[in-house]
Amino acid sequence: MKRLALGLGLVVVAGAATAFMLTAPRPVAQERLEAITALEGDPAAGEALFWAGGCASCHAAPGAEGDAKLVLSGGVRLKSDFGTFIGPNISPDPDAGIGSWSVTDFANAMLAGVSPGGGHYYPAFPYGSYSRMSDGDIADLFAFMQTLPASDVASLPHEIGFPFNIRRSLGGWKLLFFTDAPHVAVSDDPQIARGQYLVEGPGHCGECHTPRNPVGGFVGQSWLAGAQNPEGEGVIPNLTPGGKSISGWSASDIAYYLESGFTPDFDSVGGSMVAVQKNMAKLTSGDRDAIAAYLKALPERANGWE
């Protein structure tokens, strides 16, 4: 009996130790960090990634337009089923922002969701997509962000209830859902492959356009199939050829929508997509065409919100 209790106790301790180890934040591999550090970031190339990545949508002040979008003082409130996340200051201010970060710190945040202090970030910061970004793009984006104006506006704490306020629990989320693997088979067509990189990586389109399960992981086999709007009523459209949202659109219709905000019927972009479309308008037409080609090549999926 004593032996059994001892055995059970050992199992519990071993289980807790295993869970503790498994949920530990894991930074980017040392060799990769060294490779990124060795690169000379190109700020001009980084600007394109800044718009593709939509950084300003969450990190500029709420309602910022024009050049004010380049001041990443934070403050945008992002509602979710887990509480409200508030975009932090990521301007180059050394105290209020990320001015004291090295490119290594930046790479760990973007590619692994790990903070300079070694903690987990919430995946509301879409590192689950950014993890697919290339070394060169990380270095370029970091170089561009260092050219932006500093802001001393203090970041606000997220408004997240128990148990999601325990950051260690995000280790479990990462264990289950965090990956840098492609969401669909990679195409041999370079244009589609470029679109895949933009959509699945920096563009992080799936973060809103894919339905999630109750613990915040993507529902399998529903990639880009659309979802309930986490911020309230209405839906986020199905981007695959399987729904009626945009399946009737040609690739050039999609590219024109991303450029102008007009649908083929000259209805307009709306909701959160308004800010996204303004960012997409700043990409090269080649990149918008690539995104359209990738979306047209997606496997058909039924609407993710039904």
Partner: peptide, 17 residues
């Protein structure tokens, strides 16, 4: 003129499909 489309739809229109 057409900036108004998205500016209003951003807040006052919901997509249902």
């Amino acid at each position: 003129l057409t900036q108004n489309c998205g500016a209003c739809h951003e807040t006052y229109r919901l997509k249902s499909s």
